[in-house]
């Protein structure tokens, strides 16, 4: 009797153990597909790219296996490249700030407005995502030049007396970038706003806070994380987008993305392109780290 009992107890214990192990393993098994995708489609190419950046570039070949820091040295000694880094970062930061600002106002309006406006506004925000970047560029080409829509509109509204062209200006590149990234910003921020109780604004006003104070004290802190996420998202897009600034900006607007593609395709210099891309990736990672560290330490209130 006792022997049987202890035996079944042992089996039970073993089953329990197995069950606990299974439970410990479950999250890993569930994460596996995502992990595989991340490793295969992002990790490996990144490693290959890093390796490529140290290869040699001699004669007409795309690359020659080897090990050199030459490309990194070139990158930081050639003013063309250093200027491009500076220009690109500047443009991306400014465009991202503007995008976040516009996206924030837009998302806030959608959040505050009655639901009947919502679908229309969301539909509007989706539009840029439905069109390819190239098609959007062609659109701007109809919009910005001297004989374009903008000039025509301003002229016929009497705001200007002579045709103007904003084509091939930093401003056009700036607007182009904002347009490309705005939907992403908007949807990130809208999802943050949708998580907020609108009564908080009333509660704040009720306790004597003016709208400006309510914004500073309530809305801004509660959407701060969204702002940072939207900013880094926008920054990643703007810093990586090369067709738009190159097609809309002035001749001398050489962005990192443009130079990478030039090195890769035009000059057949894969190591140089990789080194440049590696710097871009590291730069983006830094910005991500910075924005993450700026996120509210008081995440406890989400607990």
């Amino acid at each position: 009797m006792t022997a049987v009992a202890s035996e079944s107890e042992a089996t039970f214990a073993a089953q329990r153990q197995a069950e606990l192990r299974r439970r410990a393993l479950a999250p890993w098994i569930l994460m596996l597909p995502a992990l595989l995708i991340v490793v295969i489609f992002f990790g490996l190419p990144m490693l290959l790219m890093a390796r490529m950046s140290f290869n040699l570039h001699i004669d007409q070949r795309l690359y020659v296996p080897g090990f050199t820091f030459e490309h990194y040295v070139n990158l930081f000694s050639n003013p063309l490249f250093t200027n491009a880094i500076w220009t690109t970062v500047q443009l991306s930061v400014l465009a991202s700030l503007a995008t976040v600002f516009i996206g924030y106002v837009f998302a806030m309006l959608v959040w505050l407005k009655p639901p009947r406006w919502r679908l229309l506004m969301i539909g509007l925000a989706l539009c840029p995502l439905l069109i390819s970047e190239i098609a959007i560029i062609f659109g701007w080409w109809m919009f910005f030049p001297k004989n374009g829509l903008l000039s025509f509109a301003l002229l016929s509204s009497g705001l200007i007396s002579d045709k103007i062209s904003l084509m091939y200006t930093e401003f056009a590149a700036f607007i182009g970038l904002i347009y490309v990234t705005l939907p992403f910003c908007f949807f990130i921020l809208l999802s943050i706003f949708d998580g907020l109780d609108k009564r908080l604004l009333e509660a704040s006003a009720d306790l004597g806070a003016s709208p400006v104070t309510t914004f500073r004290e309530v809305l801004l802190p509660l959407t701060w994380t969204g702002i940072l996420v939207a900013f880094s998202q926008s920054f990643i897009w703007t810093i990586g987008t090369y067709a738009t600034p190159s097609a809309l900006g002035p001749d001398t607007l050489w962005t990192m993305g443009f130079l990478i593609q030039e090195q890769m395709l035009g000059k057949h210099n894969w190591p140089m392109a990789s080194a440049f891309a590696a710097v871009l990736v590291i730069g983006v990672a830094c910005v991500m780290a910075i924005t993450r560290s700026m996120q509210s330490k008081r995440t406890a209130f989400h607990a």
Binding site: D197, R199, L200, E202, A203, S204, A205, D206, L207, G208, A209, S210, P211, T214, E217, V218, P221, L222, S296, R298, F301, H302
Partner: peptide, 19 residues
């Protein structure tokens, strides 16, 4: 406007500032 009135509301949801 609400913020200039000498009233204070207790909302159904509480509407406490979560942060």
């Amino acid at each position: 406007p609400a913020y200039q009135r000498d009233t204070a509301t207790i909302f159904q949801s509480g509407a406490l500032f979560p942060h």
